[in-house]
Write a protein that binds this DNA or RNA. Sequence first.
DNA 1: CGGAAGATTGAGCGTAGTCAAACCGAGTGG
DNA 2: CCACTCGGTTTGACTACGCTCAATCTTCCG
Lengths: 249, 249
Amino acid sequence: MRNALEQPLRQSALQMPPLPTELWHEYPDLVLRPNERTPYPTGNDTARLIDLMSGRRKVRQGECLYREGESFQYIYAIHSGSFKSTLALTDGCEQISNFHMMGELLGLDGVAEGLHASSGTALEDSEVSTVSYAYVGELCAAAGDMQSTMMRLIGREVVRNYSHVVVLGSLNSAQRLAAFLLNQSQRLHARGYSAVEFHLKMTRGEIGSYLGMTLETVSRTFTELQLQRLVKVDRRHITITCLDGLAHV
Amino acid sequence: MRNALEQPLRQSALQMPPLPTELWHEYPDLVLRPNERTPYPTGNDTARLIDLMSGRRKVRQGECLYREGESFQYIYAIHSGSFKSTLALTDGCEQISNFHMMGELLGLDGVAEGLHASSGTALEDSEVSTVSYAYVGELCAAAGDMQSTMMRLIGREVVRNYSHVVVLGSLNSAQRLAAFLLNQSQRLHARGYSAVEFHLKMTRGEIGSYLGMTLETVSRTFTELQLQRLVKVDRRHITITCLDGLAHV
DNA sequence: CGGAAGATTGAGCGTAGTCAAACCGAGTGG
DNA sequence: CCACTCGGTTTGACTACGCTCAATCTTCCG
């Protein structure tokens, strides 16, 4: 049971060359939204992007895919594992701006200036595909719908950040942690994992940096939510016992 | 002197139909970055976008250009005045996610889902140009560099939000307000206004919402910065007396 | 002149930060 | 096999920053 949680459900895809139909599942971000005409436009630009992603790469825990300020060359599609996006602060600390899991893209923050605005670091041993942004640019310049897909992908980053701003700007510590857990739950559920039982890949300190609070407060808030019978917490293993209650903190 | 501050320096542009070279000044966001080959590619897609912007529109203070959840039809280029982007909270309050001033674009948050993720409201009587996103999409689909410009514009929103996350996640109230003032200063300076003396268009409450603190704390922090001789504050009229000191709060 | 909206200031309180100690599990080496 | 270290986590005591509630003041505008 617990083993199943820590293994991707569609791990079979990892053993064979990526096929479009599989990638639709692995990378919901990459393809058209369900309410659009063609659920997956085989043989077109999107398929060519996917072809490009054959350059698999393993990344060890703590390894950096790219650093803040480096020139922007690649987009990374996460096959397995998870990552954090960090911004260096003047005092030497780091601010975590985002967490990314399998099926999500990494590195889009470089589109604006041609330089990465953040660093991308693996939270665990992971596997990614590198996509040359120069080639993506060529595909976009050519006729086709690739450009609208890319714009939507980047636009989605904007929307994601908006909700993070709401969390940081208007919620107290319990609400922040609840929002974080619900967000994790929802994203894992969308990828076929359990929505109520999962394993966090980040430390208390990293959660705190992301949520704008100290690691001690994160820890205290976890036990507080546990006392309210909303979650069970065993180190990084989380069991949500009352989704509704968590949403109404 | 003070009159000059409240009037756009290049106001002449408002009286005549927009010409590309003028718009390069008015909308630094819209065009290519200076280090690129062609500083301004006349007669190409970008020029066609600018032609589209002939649909001027006056917006009264407090008027809404678009509301959260509405379908995304237009991008707005701000000619004069200023705006706020707000997100509705469950408790009926609003969270301000961004302020926008003349020469900036408004409404790009709708690219992701075809729905606006925020509401855009005028902070003062303003003037905007509406740009049909459908037509922008056509231009992007056609061959040309329009798509890369648009992707950069959207990507810039991502980067802007990153620094806001840093402010909300890791700074105390004095640092937040200092960062806010320096940001205003820098953006106004980039548009030809004074970097050290300007007039805020938003209330203390709106600043507080944007910075994740209460209006009382904003007010107290203003007087605190004033006691430290870093700024002179007269209601909404700000004079920065020590830019360096403000940056090192 | 009076009302309304915004801004300032004060007093008291509470949430979350700081500093510190103890705990726990995993890995390492004697 | 046990002792040891080390990174991560939990818990406690104390503090302080910023919030809440409330009163006052200013400016604007009908």
